[in-house]
């Protein structure tokens, strides 16, 4: 292993939160409304993850994402449990890869319930595949400047004299 003792790793307790204990089809069925309900947390987490490129730096944001999703599913359970389970069941069993197309009817029922009872409207079908514009208070990380080598050859000074070539230059047609 290349993980040395100098590397700061968070402890087990810091990383332990209640996880979402749901299977893929259920998540796929909930995805559009979940994405809408947790849009800010998701974008914040993905921005952090993308900017810093280090899983250790974005643990708090990740916990916020999981917490938000947990709350979302609790709300679903409270308000639209039947409609949602029918939709998830349809997604699960209608196709081998959890297609949305065969389940438009159950989807419409769940959409209506989500809109009326939970106040979450379904976003356009390609919303999460678009570029997301996210307004955040997160400070921008310092951009890594160009590498500086102490033993690099110094440039010619600005004031250096640059006379025309003494014997002309080679001129060929192509290069």
């Amino acid at each position: 292993m290349t993980i040395t003792n100098d590397l700061n790793l968070p402890t087990e307790e810091e990383l332990s939160v209640q996880e979402i204990n749901l299977s893929g089809p259920v998540l796929k069925a909930a995805s559009f409304h979940l994405g809408r309900a947790c849009l800010h947390e998701n974008n914040e987490f993905m921005l952090c993850r993308d900017e810093l490129g280090d899983p250790r730096a974005c643990i708090e944001e990740g916990k916020a994402v999981t917490n938000c999703a947990l709350n979302f599913f609790r709300t679903v359970k409270k308000t639209c449990a039947d409609e949602f389970m029918q939709y998830a069941n349809c997604i699960d069993k209608s196709s081998p890869n959890q297609q949305y197309t065969p389940c438009r009817k159950t989807q419409a029922v769940f959409d209506k319930c989500a809109k009326d009872d939970m106040g979450i409207e379904r976003l356009p079908f390609d919303y999460y595949a678009r570029v997301q514009v996210h307004k955040t208070a997160r400070p921008k990380p310092d951009a890594e400047g160009p590498a500086v080598y102490p033993d690099a050859t110094p440039y010619l000074p600005e004031s250096a004299e640059k006379p025309p070539a003494k014997y002309g230059s080679r001129y060929l047609f192509m290069w």
Binding site: I3, L9, P10, T11, E12, L15, S16, V17, E19, I20, L27, K28, A30, S31, F32, L34, G35, C38, E41, N42, F45, M46, R49, P55, R56, C58, I59, E61, G62, K63, V65, T66, A69, N97, Q98, Q99, Y100, T101, F125, D126, Y127, Y128, A129
Partner: peptide
Amino acid sequence: NEIEMRSGRFAIFPLLLAERDREYLKQLR
């Protein structure tokens, strides 16, 4: 349909990634 499927995957990706990150760091330790 393809775009819709991709969009759905992207919507739950942060959730999956967050869980994966935590488990990954635990396993490294």
